Amino acid sequence: MIYLDNAATTFPKPEEVYARVSEVMRFHGANPGRSGHSMALEAGRIIYNSREVVAKFFNIKNPMQVVFTSNATEALNIGIKGVLEQGDHAITSSMEHNSVLRPLKALEKKGIIELTIVDCNKSGEISVSDIERAIKDNTKLIVTTHASNVTGTIFPIEEIAKLSKSRGILYMVDAAQTAGVYSIDVEKSGIDMLAFAGHKSLLGPQGTGGIYIREGLHLDTLKEGGTGSKSESLYQPEMMPDRFESGTPNTPGIAGLAAGIEFINSYGIDKIRTHEEELTKYFIDSLSEIEGVKIYGPRDISKRAPVVSINIGDEDSSEVGYIMDEAFGIGIRPGLHCAPLAHKTIGTFEQGTVRFSFGLFTKKEELDRAIEGIKEIVKSI
Results as ranks from 00 to 15, higher is better:
122 K>S: 14
124 G>N: 07
125 E>D: 10
127 S>T: 10
103 P>V: 01
97 H>E: 15
100 V>A: 05
78 I>D: 09
115 L>M: 01
113 I>P: 05
75 A>K: 09
79 G>C: 04
109 K>G: 13
90 A>D: 12
84 L>Q: 10
104 L>C: 02
97 H>Q: 14
112 I>K: 12
85 E>M: 15
80 I>N: 01
126 I>Y: 03
114 E>Y: 03
90 A>E: 02
99 S>T: 08
96 E>W: 02
104 L>F: 00
108 E>L: 14
86 Q>F: 06
85 E>W: 13
81 K>T: 11
85 E>R: 10
104 L>S: 06
103 P>A: 13
116 T>D: 11
113 I>K: 01
115 L>R: 04
85 E>P: 14
83 V>G: 09
103 P>Q: 01
99 S>N: 07
105 K>H: 11
118 V>P: 10
85 E>A: 07
103 P>W: 08
116 T>E: 05
121 N>M: 02
126 I>G: 09
119 D>W: 08
127 S>D: 10
104 L>V: 10
109 K>E: 08
93 S>W: 00
115 L>Q: 03
101 L>R: 07
102 R>K: 15
110 K>T: 15
85 E>T: 13
79 G>D: 02
78 I>F: 00
123 S>R: 12
83 V>D: 07
108 E>R: 06
96 E>M: 11
93 S>I: 13
116 T>I: 05
126 I>R: 12
116 T>R: 09
111 G>R: 08
102 R>G: 15
127 S>A: 10
126 I>M: 05
86 Q>I: 06
92 T>L: 07
89 H>T: 05
125 E>H: 08
83 V>H: 12
117 I>T: 09
112 I>E: 06
93 S>D: 08
98 N>R: 03
111 G>S: 07
123 S>M: 15
112 I>L: 04
87 G>Q: 07
75 A>I: 11
78 I>L: 08
119 D>C: 04
124 G>P: 08
126 I>V: 12
97 H>R: 12
125 E>V: 02
106 A>K: 12
114 E>S: 15
114 E>P: 09
112 I>V: 09
102 R>M: 14
116 T>L: 04
120 C>A: 11
84 L>V: 09
81 K>L: 11
107 L>T: 10
83 V>Q: 14
110 K>I: 13
108 E>W: 07
90 A>N: 06
104 L>R: 03
121 N>W: 00
113 I>C: 00
95 M>D: 07
77 N>P: 05
118 V>I: 01
83 V>P: 07
119 D>F: 02
105 K>Y: 14
111 G>W: 10
85 E>V: 08
96 E>L: 11
113 I>S: 04
117 I>W: 05
107 L>F: 04
78 I>W: 02
94 S>V: 00
107 L>D: 13
79 G>S: 01
82 G>N: 13
108 E>K: 14
82 G>Q: 04
98 N>F: 00
88 D>Y: 10
127 S>C: 10
121 N>H: 02
98 N>V: 01
108 E>G: 04
104 L>Y: 00
88 D>L: 02
112 I>P: 08
87 G>H: 06
83 V>K: 12
91 I>K: 03
110 K>P: 14
82 G>D: 03
104 L>T: 02
